[in-house]
């Protein structure tokens, strides 16, 4: 019984990371009908840059804020330079290639400058684990689901209640119509990628104290976040969040009851099966036909 509680709690934590990454993919896809496959590395930047800024002497929150700002800027630059020019025609896929390539370059560059090893990020919430029966969980890990809930509701509020958010939905719904009411769809798309960059970096910043910040921390997480988004149906924010959290918990269950080695093999198998049965995603609409 205690083991299950442990799996659920750590699962919620890692699932919140997947959910936030998937949410970022949702934000980008909505605006551009393209995504940024460097996104796992933008997530990585959130952790790594915080560590670097802390080592330079900045207080933790300021360092985290700085990392978020830089990641947002990186998201915008990636959109402008590596997505937009390769997404001009309908059904263009050039952006896939460019963003995958840039992601690898980002990771290599980080490995060269920051080093290949992970570095710890000290916060008050990883000093003492909370004991649950035989094992424990760090308070830091419990911050992640809380952050996910806040980000989800904040994002929904932004989309529904602010003019900029409504404009972003208008661009998502119909780019031509958005232009015809005076919305600069290109600018809105740039902002969407910046917003996604900040969300991804926030996840990286929050998980770094638990897993250590390394140049390679983003690769698999980015891929899983993307798969979560696709399985959920990338055009549904709530679905994306639910699937992300559930996938995290499921992973921890597999880890606990079978083995860590079995985790990704079984996890990805389930993802593929889900996609086979629900080609539009569990919560999806027919996105392709709409375009």
């Amino acid at each position: 019984m205690e083991a299950i509680l442990q799996y659920v709690l750590t699962g919620l934590s890692v699932g919140s990371v997947y959910a936030m990454i998937a949410l970022g993919f949702y934000v980008m896809w909505s605006a551009a009908k393209a995504v940024n496959f460097t996104y796992g590395d933008v997530f990585m930047l959130g952790g790594v840059l915080t560590v670097v800024l802390v080592e330079m002497g900045l207080p933790l929150l300021l360092a985290g804020g700085g990392a978020l700002a830089i990641a947002a800027l990186a998201g915008a630059v990636i959109e402008r330079v590596f997505v937009r020019p390769f997404n001009r025609e309908a059904n263009a896929i050039g952006w896939m290639l460019t963003t995958i390539a840039v992601g690898i370059m980002l990771e290599s560059f980080t490995t060269i400058t920051y080093g290949p090893l992970g570095r710890p990020l000290q916060t008050p919430f990883v000093e003492q684990p909370i004991r649950i029966g035989g094992s424990g969980i760090y308070p830091q890990e419990l911050i992640l689901p809380v952050a996910l809930v806040i980000v989800t509701f904040a994002l929904e509020g932004f989309y529904r209640r602010t003019v900029l958010g409504r404009a972003m939905r208008a661009v998502a719904f119909n780019r031509v119509a958005a232009g015809l009411v005076g919305i600069d769809a290109d600018r809105i798309t740039l902002l969407a990628f910046a917003l996604a960059g900040a969300i991804g970096a926030l996840a990286g910043f929050l998980i770094a104290p638990v897993i250590q910040a390394s140049s390679s921390m983003g690769v698999v997480v980015g891929l899983k976040g993307f798969m979560v988004a696709i399985i959920a149906g990338i055009a549904n924010a709530r679905g994306v969040v639910i699937v992300g959290v559930v996938y995290g918990v499921m992973e921890k269950m597999i880890e606990g009851y079978l083995s860590t080695a079995a985790r990704d093999a079984i996890g990805f198998t389930i993802m593929i099966l889900a996609l086979l049965i629900f080609p539009q995603g569990l919560f999806g609409r027919r996105e392709v036909q709409k375009v």
């Binding site: 409504r166 404009a167 719904f173 119509a177 009411v181 919305i183």
Partner: peptide, 19 residues
């Protein structure tokens, strides 16, 4: 027409005055 089908009539009008 291309109205923003997933937003309310009022929000469509507000977006008309976006600038």
């Amino acid at each position: 027409r291309m109205v923003f089908a997933d937003q309310t009539v009022r929000d469509n009008l507000v977006l008309g005055a976006y600038s």
